[in-house]
Amino acid sequence: MAGDLERALSKLRTDDQVLGYSLMTKIGRPFVSFSFPGDLFPRVKDSIKLYKSDLRLMTIDADRGLVVLSPVDDNWILTVLYVPELQLGLAIAKTKNVMRLLEGIELPPPPEEFEDSAERNLEVLQSIAIKAASIAPTAEAQPPTPEAKPAYPAGPSPKAVPESKLLGPDDFQVLPTTAPKRGDMYSNALSLDSELYSEMKRAYRNFGFDVLMLVDGNRTVSQIAESMFQPNERVSTLLKWAASKGIVSVPEAKEKVSQEKMSPSMGRFVKCPLFEGDLGKAKSEDLRILKLCDGSKTSEEIAEAAGVPHPRVIQVLAQYRRFGLKMIGKTV
């Protein structure tokens, strides 16, 4: 968590147009700061107090520069001071870029007592996060058990209830080149008052909504991730979850073969020769082999079918590589 937060905030530190920043609590107390002028804190605090829970992204035109405030979540507010000559739109865009990075980080609430802008505050936050993570699984373990047994009306026979198989996120295959389509539950997920939206908001905050807005059946995962300055993996993870809820439609992962003894494989990768040249110009002794080069047989299979040794087939393939013969790789 601390590493990710540090990485997100480093975007601001390395930006020449940023004079300083401060990650503040919801009441305006600076927790982690970098070159943020102390005399601006009261003004920022007043603005936060003014809007309270209605605070959205706002800007303050100060003598020192342009201040952009944005709530990260219910506990944190990011405040950035930009150079005075920076255009407002650009300042907001830069802040939103950092906000997107922060959205992916589970920030714990601030400790009860801390020293304003102290260097070790980040470590304190990290230890709070670790402690929270070590408690969380035991809390989650309890609810599922009462729901564990599905209530079948009669007998233990599974074929009595032909329900459609519920697919989990891991049952889908999402590649950078996959173009997700909108699913049946797409509109429902975007309705602010729906349960599905609430579930998505809890798990992914605004990131889920932002990604879904970009799903149109044409944009690939890579394009969506790029436009949001996010890694492909993060978008893929969300889309797999969304697919499991019927919000989007993506290809299912191929069934894995039983892996007790066999190591998992996507199918045998083979190379099959395909002759596309002019058979009329080929030597008569090579015709039998060339006619079998249809892109569906391996060189070993051709040798067996033609009744010739395998090296002979390789000789012919090598000879005709310059005359219309190519090797096609595929999995079978």
Partner: peptide, 12 residues
Amino acid sequence: VDQVLSQTANIE
């Protein structure tokens, strides 16, 4: 590449 393809479960 042949070896990798024979040892992996999917394209990813």
